[in-house]
Amino acid sequence: MKKPLILVTNDDGITAPGLRSLVLLMKEIGDVVVVAPDSPQSGMGHAITLDSTLYATKMSSDFGASGVEEYSCSGTPADCVKLALQELLERKPDICVSGINHGANSSINVIYSGTMSAAIEAGIEGVPAIGFSLCDYSWDADFSQAKAFITNIVKEALDHGIPKDVVLNVNIPRLKTEEIKGVKICRQAKANWKEKFDKRTNPMGRDYYWLTGEFELLDKGEDTDEWALANGYVSLVPTQFDLTAHHAIQAINNWNLK
């Protein structure tokens, strides 16, 4: 039997330690092809490149993991997946894994996440997909603590499949392996960023802005990703890309629309 073909991507860039760790883990499971941005693309969401050229540079064999085909892409995370599926891969991958992201992509952060947008792009194309994030923004974070959980989740997804039109959003707490209580299937917590702009002036007299803000959890439920992470669990949220608010259709049908 053929080994599963695993597409690996991310939003932190092809040299990011989180991606390098994920590549080594996936090599233990199947054949790996990497298509990842050539520079950090955090917060890009589902942006795609429309008004400029895209490049995909095949990396030299001594760049990364032995036996892994790797491409550095000039585009966004979603571009990477599109290009991989349409041009670079010889066959459809059995699964796409995105990450391991440096920092959480729980609750409202999923909207902005390039990591999850790459996974969602794969899901749109009918490829089972998972986004992995570690709740540690440090560049030298210890990704080895997440190894057992990531390996188990990917193997289970390959064995059982992921429901149609669903991708998995997995966040791992910043804890040692033995301190993590297990994996909890969750819903996305209701939360927001209380944002403001730090206005400054450059030496030429021109105003500029830095986006700042504080995370605001608005959900006290014990079935959410934020609760799971705060209580020592890996959170796994089945995420869909059908954005229809089905519950609102009947109410809007009562409008006097002409």
Rank of each mutant, 00 (worst) to 15 (best):
S39P: 00
P40V: 13
S42C: 13
G43Q: 14
M44K: 07
M44L: 10
G45I: 05
H46R: 08
H46K: 05
A47M: 14
A47I: 01
I48Y: 05
T49C: 07
L50V: 14
L50T: 12
D51Y: 14
D51A: 14
S52L: 04
S52H: 15
T53M: 10
T53D: 11
Y55N: 07
A56K: 01
T57Q: 07
T57W: 01
T57N: 05
T57P: 00
K58F: 02
M59S: 02
M59C: 09
S60E: 15
S61C: 07
S61K: 14
D62T: 09
F63R: 05
S66Y: 08
V68H: 01
V68G: 06
S72M: 14
T76Y: 03
P77H: 06
P77L: 07
A78R: 12
D79E: 06
D79P: 12
C80E: 01
K82G: 00
K82H: 08
A84I: 08
L85G: 02
L85R: 04
Q86G: 00
Q86N: 11
E87R: 08
L88E: 02
L89W: 05
L89M: 14
R91D: 02
K92I: 10
C96G: 03
V97S: 09
V97H: 11
G99N: 13
G99I: 08
I100V: 15
H102V: 00
H102P: 02
N105R: 06
N105S: 12
S106P: 00
S106F: 07
S107H: 10
